[in-house]
Write a protein that binds this DNA or RNA. Structure first.
Lengths: 208, 208
DNA sequence: CTCCAATCGAAACGATACGTTTCGTTATAT
DNA sequence: ATATAACGAAACGTATCGTTTCGATTGGAG
């Protein structure tokens, strides 16, 4: 998998300087590279602004100038991975949701650095109210966007128009979060079809 | 609600001393009281061993001696609340699950300190592998225990014997976690019946 | 009864990270 | 030509970490 941005072209360059009264793209990139590397090597616990600054050979003020919170920096690292993932549109809600849970959530987090980063972001949001606000907004946006899968199913007549698309997607995402935060991604991936079938079909043979 | 242990009888007592070569119960209680108070006043962010020690007028080594991790201390505070909550057994799976989600999860966390403490524990588990192990074990145990609700429904013939009880409960718990960690407990409580009905019945009118 | 051992609170330790401020340098924008 | 704003570097004071000392306390072993 080449989902991970390349950071092998390390900072062999000469020391960066100011390029005038504007942001230095090279510095920004070096900082993101460093943040990713630090997260990769030391995990969540070792992730600090100081460590990133050292690794990037950047001044702390430069980081604080462009990223108000540690969370903002982590989210930017996360977003580097989430590059143009086309949304599943297979023509079937079931396989759309399976692909969504298996590829876009669990599979995306598995193995790569993304899971680690996302866990850190969620953890940070429990401490920092500002981070909580950012994460909540991000989740709301993603939820609304993902609900389009259900909208398309409605258009196909696959589900009634009254179906609460956001709730369906919320159940899928909630399950993925729970598994991620408990470090059970690998186990969860094996059960994806069962989970989706349960969410779509409910408890088989349930007598109301 | 009087779910919260009383800590109003504050430490007006004289300074505690050693009572010999054994644990001082008064100190342990004072530390737990202080931990709860600190969490209550400063939230997760302000929670530090130093702050707890100051508040309890205890020495830091005394805390480190009895609680290896910060998480262990937080979990002990959490457990003070979780006093003998009897499990829902209403004779109907639907109302059992509604009560479970509304009272034992969301309602238990709402308002009281428990939600804050639990969020802190989950956050800590993302950083500290030891905390992760403890939390994972705790969740697995609770999951198996809660699945008994579905087992009783099976015995009543309400659901087929092949139903995956742990998956049903997992979906409910996952939803509760997601809402807790996003700070949306209040909104979530209003939607409890809809959520349970969706999990039990699936998407109404879904054509497989 | 004597003394050992383990506890207690208090204080201080070095280390680390926080977020901010200063400084001299650089180069765009006006 | 000059004001402006970014850059890296260094240092600031504050806070918490987890550990180490210290003297005082008191139960339990010998």
């Amino acid at each position: 998998m080449s989902t991970e941005p390349d950071i092998s072209a390390d900072n062999d360059e000469i020391a960066r300087r100011s390029i005038g009264a504007r942001r230095n793209p090279a510095s920004q990139e070096a900082i993101l590279d460093a943040a990713q590397a630090v997260m990769q090597e030391g995990g969540i616990a070792g992730f600090s602004i100081e460590a990133v600054a050292r690794r990037a050979r950047a001044g702390k003020p430069t980081i604080y100038r462009w990223w108000p919170h540690r969370t903002a920096l982590m989210l930017d690292v996360y977003k580097r991975f989430k590059n143009a993932r086309s949304f599943p549109d297979s023509g079937s809600l079931r396989s759309d949701l399976i692909s969504f849970l298996e590829d876009h959530l669990l599979g995306f987090w598995q193995g790569s650095l993304c899971g680690t980063v996302y866990r850190a972001v969620v953890a940070e949001a429990q401490t920092d109210p500002e981070a909580a606000k950012v994460l909540k907004a991000y989740q709301a946006e993603r939820l609304a966007y993902s609900a389009q899968m259900v909208d398309r199913a409605k258009a196909r007549g696959e589900v009634p128009a009254a179906t609460d698309g956001e709730l369906i997607v919320d159940l899928v995402v909630s399950y993925a979060w729970h598994q991620l935060l408990l470090g059970q991604i690998d186990d969860a991936i094996a059960r994806v079809p069962t989970v989706i079938d349960t969410i779509l079909g409910g408890v088989r043979g349930y007598r109301e």
